[in-house]
């Protein structure tokens, strides 16, 4: 279980998180939604320790995220970044097998390559992609490679940062389905941040709406449409009028 308690984070005068509380039960898929600049990515990066919160507690399976062996902590996570964040200087298979080629999870090169190719197949990419470089791939293929990298070491927890941003609706659907399948078959705990309501419906067990630095509403995805929460309703119906100011 991932638990955020009263997490605050500000950048100079900009108070992004203002006491965020969130619980993600083990083995479930939580999708965090909210407008641009509301702190969704900041929350995710606080859990991973990429950003240090100003105050508050973050626990992963009862362990304080800021304490203990950092490598062991991060080894439990996989992450798909918004732009893929693939390493330009490495071929695709070395991107996917990055964790398997060094550090505590190191495997022989041939075995790491085999695993990388297997993971590429799992996300619908052919073996001939393995030796290409990220710059030679389309946006959708890069996302799939990023997804393959996120699952290569079979992590317990997977984070997806805007997994369908910049993709056409068909490719978005493919990525959403892949994420749902992979999370289900691996039994992983997942946290996704997105604006894309089709992603929310495809991926989520639970949904949390972040606004003004706090979670305005959280609950099962099945209850989202009948929540009665004015913030959530405005967001999911994409209305310009409502409690969320259109100009921020």
């Amino acid at each position: 279980m991932i638990r955020m308690e009263n997490v605050h984070k500000a950048f100079d005068d900009n108070r992004v998180l203002r006491g965020m509380n969130l619980e993600i039960p083990k083995g479930t898929s939580m999708v965090v939604i909210g407008g641009s600049g509301t702190g969704k990515s900041v929350a995710l990066k606080c859990i991973l320790g990429l950003i240090t919160p100003d105050s508050g507690k973050i626990h992963v399976d009862g362990q304080d995220a800021a304490q203990g062996d950092r490598d062991a902590f991060l080894a439990r996570f996989g992450m798909l970044f918004q732009g893929g964040a693939l390493f330009d200087s490495l071929p695709v298979w070395q991107n996917v097998a990055f964790r398997l080629l060094r550090g505590s999870l190191k495997r022989p090169v041939e075995e790491a390559r085999e695993i990388a190719i297997e993971k590429l197949r799992r996300v619908g990419l052919r073996e001939n992609v393995a030796d290409r470089f990220p710059a030679e791939l389309s946006g959708g293929m890069q996302k799939r490679v990023g997804l393959a990298r996120a699952i290569a070491a079979e992590p317990e927890i997977i984070f997806f940062d805007e997994p369908t941003t910049g993709l056409d609706p068909i490719m978005s659907g493919v990525i959403n389905d892949l994420i749902r399948e992979i999370v289900t078959e691996m039994g992983a705990t997942a946290m996704t941040i997105t604006h894309d309501m089709s992603s929310v419906r495809a991926i989520a067990d639970n949904v949390a709406m972040l606004h003004d630095g706090v979670i305005q509403w959280t609950g099962p995805v099945s209850e989202m449409d009948a929540s009665g929460d004015p913030y959530l309703e405005q967001f999911i119906h994409g209305r310009a009028e409502g409690p969320i100011e259109a100009v921020r």
Partner: peptide, 16 residues
């Protein structure tokens, strides 16, 4: 460029 495209963050999440 690696920083702007989150490749540095990706390195950290890959325990590097």
């Amino acid at each position: 460029t690696m920083k702007v495209t989150e490749q540095i963050d990706a390195l950290v999440t890959l325990s590097t």
